[in-house]
Design a protein around this nucleic acid. Sequence first.
DNA 1: GGAAATTAATCAATCGTTTGATTAATTTTG
DNA 2: CAAAATTAATCAAACGATTGATTAATTTCC
Lengths: 208, 208
Amino acid sequence: MKTEKVDKRQAILEAAEKLFCETGYEGTSTRQIAKESGANMAMINYYFGSKEGVFVEIMNERIASFASQLKIINEDKISALEKLHRVIEGYVNRILNNTAFHKMMHRELSLTQRPEMYDKIKDAMSHNMQLIDRIITGGIEDGSFNKVDVRMVIATIMGTITNIVIAPNKVMPCSNFDLNNPKDKKMIKERAIAHLQDLTTVYLTTKK
Amino acid sequence: MKTEKVDKRQAILEAAEKLFCETGYEGTSTRQIAKESGANMAMINYYFGSKEGVFVEIMNERIASFASQLKIINEDKISALEKLHRVIEGYVNRILNNTAFHKMMHRELSLTQRPEMYDKIKDAMSHNMQLIDRIITGGIEDGSFNKVDVRMVIATIMGTITNIVIAPNKVMPCSNFDLNNPKDKKMIKERAIAHLQDLTTVYLTTKK
DNA sequence: GGAAATTAATCAATCGTTTGATTAATTTTG
DNA sequence: CAAAATTAATCAAACGATTGATTAATTTCC
């Protein structure tokens, strides 16, 4: 069947990403990647040079598309609060649409053996942190926000989303959902956005 | 020298924990553990049966001491807000005093190949979530707290702390510190506690 | 027909684990 | 008390299995 033509290169990337997400980089063997992708083991080295080459390719691809989604929220007409709300919405959607990759990224961020990879993730993440920093700092300077600990507010925004993705969620009456279930995911997205927008509004703009 | 008597068993545990934290479980070899601890390789299996046995032992130890620190905040005399503030203080201190282990725990939580380990961590973590849940729900019921999305508030409290520990911190003017530096750690602890207490106070008790 | 893609077979290195032997300490026995 | 027996702790060496990588031959495709 000639219609069965598949791009082995792409198949390897997809299989590797799935496996890396599930069992980690060291926990995934090249033989597993070959089997899962339907490619011969040698194809991994043929296309990517090495196992690490596959990993780097995956991360670069993802981080690039991540960065490209970073819309410049710099229209003069909208308020600092409105900017922040848009960033929250974009950030929640992005992460909850890529939960497996987000977990893998966080895992890699806590390891020390691939400093090159760590730096890449750090750079991508600090872009987001700086964007939020500029918005909040701007709001404080123009008087629309209270004077707050900016670093801690950033930790709250990013940490809340990450916690929803990583922490166990089938655990309590108030938390009993599955992010692999599309309906649950949609609901959690909406709740996360509503919560973070509400929280930042109250905390940043309530006069004492 | 009889004073030079060292407990090899303990040495293995400590070396293994350090290495597991730094390079992950699969990324650490038994030979590395042996070298780092000064013990013979065979001692690992002699004392713990297997590499995984070492890992399980470390996690059990840590989780047990974790749980024992969970003070029952159930004195009738203090308000829900006061209870919540105490939990925040205890939680921040506990995690920032064990950042390496906390990272490892989170890493393990995002992997699927050791379900037994995942369940242990999940159980430990859900205890904390349930404690916070009871406090907030109680506050809502007695009218001292606003009606909020409890799961999301929990994600905010726990996620904020985890983000401080895991996210890169030498990155921006507003975030330039090193948790390995005792002075920085002390400062961050204080800021994290102040921020989360302030945040929860404003968000949970401000009347709209 | 020739470049690109794919394969099976093989490589040295490393993995976690086990072995049999040895030491040092403790307990039992006469 | 001292000799004999037993135990726990430690070691170097080796085990079979698996790792990531490479080779050389073959197939596919333009």
